[in-house]
């Protein structure tokens, strides 16, 4: 009974925390807005009366889509990280392990350098090109892995991902060398930023999160088996290869979409699963939802720091997540080391 109660409290705390963080991110920024004012704007927007004044535009056109995008990207990257860590039984894996995220970054850089632009809603040419490159990378990496090693062993996958990531980085550097005055845009983009997101990006992210989340969440039970090792998973009746292909494809597609909207935001997918495991344990049935919720909160707060700390100057969000992420990761490992020493 005590364990059941603990779970209820964790869920309640998670929901309350998310609500609090959401409101905090809405009210704070280069222009602080009072909570009451914010609530008024939201309430009138819900009843169909969208306020067109200065405050209304800041809240509804700028902050709200941006916060939702941050939340969705955080949730997606963290969910992907947890799936990849379980799947590859490697606590250093995340959604970018296969190199598909780097591929998306390359696509974005190509779009920036060539000035590629198409009219498709409010989505930028950069986003569309990044999605295209992510899809090509996914097909390339998985196809090559399958051709080299039909059993898709963890080692082959990690090796190929690392090699592909390096190749793409080299191409990116090459591109930057010839980019001239666009250097700043590319650099800012590869470090991640949510400064230019809009409601269309939000819809794109929501669609990706719903579709690929719906594919990944039902794999929770089989991911538990993978955490015991692939051969044990096979003995217990898991279809190892199919699980790997489906999960990796979904993870890469989800991360590809995230990168194409927000750029390369590092460390979120790596750190959140480790923090979530401390709270809800390693069982994926609880870990995956916890990661989605935790990652959403983490990235909303990081984005708040990115836009509010040195306002009006805006920091790349990837810088914030990497600084916090690295600190948290070291703290977690130090703690683990102490526990091991005591055991």
């Amino acid at each position: 009974m005590k364990r059941g109660q603990r779970r209820v409290w964790i869920v309640l705390a998670g929901i309350l925390l998310t609500g609090f963080v959401f409101m905090l991110c809405l009210c704070l920024g280069s222009v602080p807005i009072a909570v009451r004012e914010t609530m008024n704007v939201l309430r009138s927007a819900l009843t169909g009366a969208v306020r067109d004044d200065y405050i209304g535009i800041i809240l509804l056109r700028r902050r709200l889509p941006r916060i939702l995008c941050a939340g969705l990207i955080g949730a997606s990257l963290s969910l992907s990280g947890a799936v990849m860590q379980g799947l590859l039984r490697n606590s250093l894996a995340d959604g970018s392990t296969l190199g598909v995220s780097s591929g998306a970054s390359l696509g974005a850089a190509v779009a920036i350098v060539t000035g590629f632009s198409v009219a498709m809603g409010d989505l930028t040419g950069t986003t569309l090109m990044a999605i295209l490159f992510a899809a090509l990378s996914l097909a390339g990496v998985l196809g090559l892995a399958y051709a080299l090693d039909k059993s898709l062993s963890t080692q082959t996958i990690i090796l190929l991902g690392v090699v592909y990531g390096m190749l793409v980085s080299a191409l990116l550097t090459l591109l930057i060398t010839f980019s001239g005055e666009k250097l700043r845009t590319i650099t800012f983009w590869t470090l991640g930023s949510l400064a230019s997101v809009n409601w269309s990006s939000m819809l794109l992210l929501t669609g990706a999160f719903v579709i690929f989340g719906a594919i990944l969440l039902p794999h929770a039970a089989v991911l538990d088996l993978f955490a015991l090792g692939e051969s044990r998973a096979a003995h217990l009746g898991a279809n190892v290869r199919r699980t790997k292909i489906v999960c990796m494809a979904a993870v890469c597609a989800l991360c590809g979409v995230c990168v194409s909207v927000g750029g390369g935001i590092g460390f979120v997918g790596l750190v959140t699963p480790h923090m979530a495991r401390l709270v809800v344990g390693p069982s994926h049935k609880r870990l995956l939802p916890a990661c989605a919720l935790g990652g959403a909160n983490f990235l909303m707060l990081c984005d708040l720091a990115a836009r509010a700390l040195f306002s009006p100057l805006e920091l790349p969000i990837g810088v914030i997540t990497s600084i916090i992420g690295a600190a948290v990761f070291i703290a977690l490992y130090a703690k683990r080391g102490r526990n091991d020493a005591n055991a």
């Binding site: 039984r89 090792g229 069982s283």
Partner: peptide
């Protein structure tokens, strides 16, 4: 078993 801290019951249940 795992580098992750599953409980004994969770591991047995996976059977």
């Amino acid at each position: 078993f795992s580098q992750f801290a599953f409980t004994v019951e969770e591991v047995v249940r996976m059977g």
